[in-house]
């Protein structure tokens, strides 16, 4: 293997952070997308705007707010530490949180789009066949929005792999703990003689991104075929 242990660490950490950030944020994204696509309530526009904020704010600002809110002395971070002993700052979990926040709008948008194209008549039909609201959601709605969920999850995964600004601001640059792939590349470019390592990691980043695009294409195609019921 032509990759050094530091580089392998960075890649493994990045994959772990991205996986956890997607796994953790997906249920929330589906919930918020349901709320935005189907519910009418005062303050809906505000929630919509807040969800989309990470898309337009400089990532450093998001990282700074995370630090203020989720830091050990922050209102939420302090509470979590006292009550449950959970700490995010300077941990890989913090990196996952930052990545989740940054990828959240992409996820919500993709899921919301497919929710809006779901034929509600199918849900009504399932209800007349004896399925309660929860059952309708899991047996009709969720399978029908699968292409959107897959797209959203992969977009957010890719976004997590590349997340830099919010992560470095929130959890800093600790080798083996918070030094993800992009931060590692940045670090190597800052030290003399690190060019070769930076190049190798950049190639890995390209390969990973291509792989994500490829997998997403296959999954989406398979999921939409299922939903449209066109396979023999």
């Amino acid at each position: 293997m032509w990759l050094g242990p530091d580089e392998i660490d960075a890649i493994q950490l990045s994959l772990k952070v991205a996986l956890w950030s997607v796994a953790f944020s997906l249920p929330f994204a589906i919930g918020i997308a349901m709320l935005l696509a189907r519910a009418e309530f005062p303050g809906k526009t505000l929630i919509d705007a807040v969800v989309h904020l990470p898309l337009v704010l400089p990532p450093v600002v998001v990282g700074y707010f995370l630090l203020v809110l989720m830091g050990v002395n922050g209102p939420i971070g302090g509470f979590l530490k006292e009550q449950f002993g959970i700490v995010f700052v300077f941990r890989w979990t913090g990196a996952a949180l930052a990545a989740a926040v940054m990828g959240f709008p992409l996820m919500v948008r993709a899921i919301r789009l497919s929710l809006e194209s779901v034929d509600r008549g199918l849900e009504a039909a399932a209800a007349t066949l004896g399925a309660g609201p929860r059952e309708v959601f899991f047996t009709v709605t969720l399978p029908l929005i699968m292409p959107g969920v897959v797209t959203g999850a992969l977009l957010s995964f890719a976004r997590s792999l590349g997340e830099f600004g919010a992560t470095i601001t929130f959890v800093s640059n600790i080798p083996g703990e918070t030094r993800t792939l992009p931060i590692a590349i940045y670090s190597f470019t800052q030290v003399p003689g690190g060019d070769a390592q930076a190049l190798r990691l950049s190639i890995v980043a390209v390969v990973l991104s291509l792989a994500v695009l490829f997998v997403s294409e296959i999954l989406v195609r398979r999921a939409s075929r299922r939903v449209q019921g066109r396979h023999a």
Partner: peptide
């Protein structure tokens, strides 16, 4: 609706495509 036990046949069939 899910407790009314009525068999509703819709104009467009509404079969679950998945």
């Amino acid at each position: 609706p899910h407790r009314r036990r009525l068999g509703y046949i819709f104009q467009e069939g509404r079969l679950l495509p998945h």
